[in-house]
């Protein structure tokens, strides 16, 4: 459905997109995950032909995307990172206005009502955007972007500065849109969100795609199979050295009486380590075992945390 090939975008000496390649299939919720400044928004802006790029090609629905591709734009809904609505229009007028940019009058009324219901803005129809809370404002922004029921919806960090309740509503709404048949591109630096809703993910940093795949595929790409955290009192260097030699352990840290072990995937890792601590008469308190997250994937690929 969307094909981006060798996309290069420079701002002077800064290379914002460095031979970026992406393939997005119809019906997917495709997550573009990366830290702030990694090139996600630039990629979206190039995809929408809002920015001129230096090199590469972008095709949507099998046709090249240009600033004049109005027939393509008709089937694309965009929810910008910054809320893009008119302060002097009411909630309903804003949704109606953005709907009118895509569809004719006959269908408009029904679509506007549906978008209002979808975003849960029934009680705020006549309010001006300035009177809305951050969460409601984001929901209005989304309603304006999806009101014309597009085939492709691009959401650029739609949950920034949103309270948990509104965030959940937004995420479940996005999944509902996908169920209704829209393909979705979702950019975020919140890995939990991406993990929760995206069927496929591309991890992006410094304008390059570092890895692409489903959550499981990405996790399988890395060494970490399990991260064990144990609150252990007074671990000495000989015990730590012994633990380092344990099978499957490839990383260990002990700070402020918290032992963190990263292990490759294997059975009975936790039992073996707890037995060792008991044998050595080392008291331990809370014990956690966690499967790898996208942050682990990002950490292992780039050597830094996703939120750095």
């Amino acid at each position: 459905m969307i094909h981006i090939e060798n996309l290069v975008k420079r701002y002077g000496d800064l290379v914002a997109l460095d031979h970026l390649n992406l393939d997005i299939k119809e019906g997917e919720i495709f997550g573009l995950l990366g830290p702030n400044g990694s090139g996600k928004t630039t990629a979206i802006n190039c995809l929408l032909a809002l920015l001129k790029y230096d090199k590469g090609t972008v095709t949507i629905f099998g046709r090249p995307m240009t600033p004049d591709s109005y027939d393509l734009k008709k089937d694309i809904g965009i929810v910008m990172q910054n809320v893009a609505v008119f302060d002097q229009m009411s909630v309903m007028e804003n949704i109606d206005y953005f709907c009118g940019l895509y569809v004719k009058d006959k269908e408009k009324r029904r679509l506007v009502e549906e978008a209002i219901t979808f975003a849960g803005l029934e009680n705020y129809k006549k309010m001006r955007p300035k009177k809305l809370s951050g969460g409601l404002l984001r929901r209005l922004n989304i309603a304006c972007g999806i009101v014309h029921k597009p085939r492709l919806i691009i959401l650029d960090e739609p949950t920034v500065a949103v309270d948990p309740q509104s965030r959940n509503k937004i995420l479940s709404g996005i999944m509902e849109l996908n169920r209704q048949g829209s393909t979705i591109i979702y950019t975020s630096h919140y890995m939990e969100e991406v993990e929760q809703i995206c069927s496929r993910i591309a991890i992006i940093d410094h304008g390059q795609v570092l890895a692409t795949g489903t959550t499981e595929e990405l996790k399988k790409m890395i060494k970490t199979g399990e991260t064990i955290t144990i609150e252990a009192i007074s671990l000495a260097e000989p015990e730590l050295a012994a633990l380092r030699e344990f099978p499957h352990v490839f990383d260990l840290s002990y700070q402020e009486q918290v032992l963190t072990l990263r292990l490759s995937s294997a059975k009975h890792n936790l039992v073996r380590i707890l037995n060792f601590l008991q044998e050595k008469n080392i008291s331990f308190g809370q014990v956690f075992s966690a499967l790898p997250t996208l942050n682990d994937v990002f950490l292992e690929i780039t050597g830094k945390e996703l939120r750095d």
């Binding site: 809002l50 109005y70 734009k73 694309i76 965009i78």
Partner: peptide
């Protein structure tokens, strides 16, 4: 930018 994404030239 939002308006430029629309199908109205």
């Amino acid at each position: 930018r939002r308006l430029l994404c629309s199908s109205v030239s």
